[in-house]
Simulated assay, not measured.
Amino acid sequence: KELIGHGVAYCASCDGMFYKDKIVVVVGGGNSAVSEAALLSRIAKKVIIVHRRDTLRATKIYNDQLMKTENIEFRWNSTVKELLYGERLTGVRLKDTVTGEENIIECDGLFVSIGRKPTIDFLENQIELDNKGYIVAGENTETSIPGVYAVGDVRTKLLRQIVTAVADGAMAVHMAEKYIGEM
């Protein structure tokens, strides 16, 4: 927690520019991780993808793009064992999942992209969720319960960023006012 904003980040589109011409590590192998790595490859000097398996789980189109990107390296069969830091992150200690061997990578930033889980436990069995646990709500933010609206990262949507959450909030206010007005 103490390294968030001091070398540890969770959103390349939000924090990527802080790492212009620097070395960053992206942890993960799914679509989120590789899209973060692709974006960072246009900003950072070098991007190192650390994945616990020997292949990415991301869709093929992402795989092909990343394999051709010159400033992206892969550390297959690896997990982050330790963050190295003083006032800021200075590197990571990796552990090979096959051999157990450890090595250190010096870096300026670490982007964690190992999946997302919405915090909606208090709503389970009360509202319609998709197969990944997100609240089903269209662009108008309406849910399966009349008068209940879902905004931000808990809602089924393609893009999860602050700007889309703010837009959701504006839409939800509009829809709630309309709902109350029709009561």
Results as ranks from 00 to 15, higher is better:
residue 1 K to M: 14
residue 5 G to Q: 06
residue 5 G to F: 03
residue 6 H to D: 13
residue 7 G to R: 09
residue 8 V to C: 07
residue 9 A to T: 03
residue 11 C to L: 07
residue 12 A to P: 05
residue 14 C to R: 01
residue 15 D to Q: 08
residue 17 M to H: 06
residue 24 V to D: 11
residue 25 V to F: 06
residue 26 V to G: 06
residue 26 V to S: 02
residue 30 G to D: 10
residue 31 N to I: 05
residue 31 N to Y: 03
residue 34 V to L: 15
residue 34 V to D: 13
residue 37 A to F: 12
residue 37 A to L: 09
residue 39 L to R: 10
residue 44 A to Q: 13
residue 45 K to I: 02
residue 45 K to T: 02
residue 45 K to P: 00
residue 46 K to V: 11
residue 47 V to R: 09
residue 54 D to S: 15
residue 55 T to R: 14
residue 57 R to Y: 08
residue 57 R to S: 15
residue 59 T to K: 06
residue 59 T to Y: 05
residue 61 I to K: 07
residue 64 D to R: 08
residue 64 D to I: 14
residue 72 I to K: 10
residue 73 E to M: 10
residue 76 W to C: 04
residue 77 N to Q: 14
residue 79 T to L: 08
residue 81 K to Q: 14
residue 83 L to S: 02
residue 83 L to V: 12
residue 83 L to E: 03
residue 84 L to T: 03
residue 87 E to H: 04
residue 90 T to D: 09
residue 91 G to C: 08
residue 92 V to W: 12
residue 96 D to A: 08
residue 102 E to P: 04
residue 105 I to Y: 05
residue 109 G to D: 06
residue 110 L to D: 05
residue 112 V to N: 06
residue 114 I to P: 06
residue 114 I to N: 06
residue 116 R to M: 07
residue 119 T to N: 14
residue 120 I to N: 11
residue 122 F to S: 04
residue 123 L to G: 04
residue 125 N to V: 03
residue 130 D to F: 13
residue 134 Y to K: 09
residue 134 Y to G: 00
residue 137 A to W: 01
residue 139 E to S: 04
residue 142 E to M: 04
residue 144 S to E: 03
residue 144 S to W: 01
residue 146 P to I: 02
residue 148 V to D: 01
residue 148 V to A: 09
residue 155 R to N: 03
residue 157 K to I: 01
residue 158 L to R: 12
residue 159 L to N: 10
residue 162 I to P: 00
residue 165 A to N: 02
residue 166 V to N: 05
residue 167 A to W: 00
residue 170 A to T: 11
residue 170 A to S: 11
residue 173 V to S: 11
residue 173 V to H: 06
residue 176 A to R: 11
residue 176 A to D: 09
residue 177 E to R: 15
residue 178 K to D: 10
residue 179 Y to R: 12
residue 180 I to S: 12
residue 181 G to F: 12
residue 182 E to L: 10
